[in-house]
Amino acid sequence: MDEILDILANNARITIDEVAKLTGKKVEEIKKTITKYEKDGVIVKYKTVINHDLVRDSNSFVRALIEVSVTPQKDVGFDNVAERIYSFPEVTSCYLVSGAYDLLLVVEGENIQTVSNFVASKLAPMENVRSTATHFLLKKYKEDGQILKKKSDGKRLNISY
């Protein structure tokens, strides 16, 4: 991956100035490259990884992985039915996968009830959806390469040769 992307992927809040210092490149050059990435859709958006377990209102947030088997359509395959599904705001991620089912969704809601309602009233009844299997997430250990457990303090000595 490009060095600038790698830095931003780890810290979206870093300033252009700092990126320039870390890469040894000129500020103008960094600015231009980032703008181009944004325009081309390489950089889609800047996000924050949140450990919802530690947020006070975590009781009003649930996440589920849903396996969906669908019947593909002539010419367009899975794309149309995928679009109909991922257009729901409840669906935060949608992947076409190989294996025992076709689409893997990440669905978020305020509680189990809202997610269940979404599955029962929106997703399962859709014309091309053959079956669904819902897995509610119980605990997050690692997300986007980040281990969510607070790291213990370093074990290195403060000084050594």
């Binding site: 290195r156 000595l157 403060n158 000084i159 050594s160 040769y161």
Partner: peptide
């Protein structure tokens, strides 16, 4: 000096000869 460093807390250390 080393003893002084090792006895202190909340230090930002740039004195370490090993990877972090």
């Amino acid at each position: 000096f080393f003893d002084l460093v090792l006895g202190m807390k909340d230090v930002i250390s740039l004195g370490v000869g090993e990877p972090d």
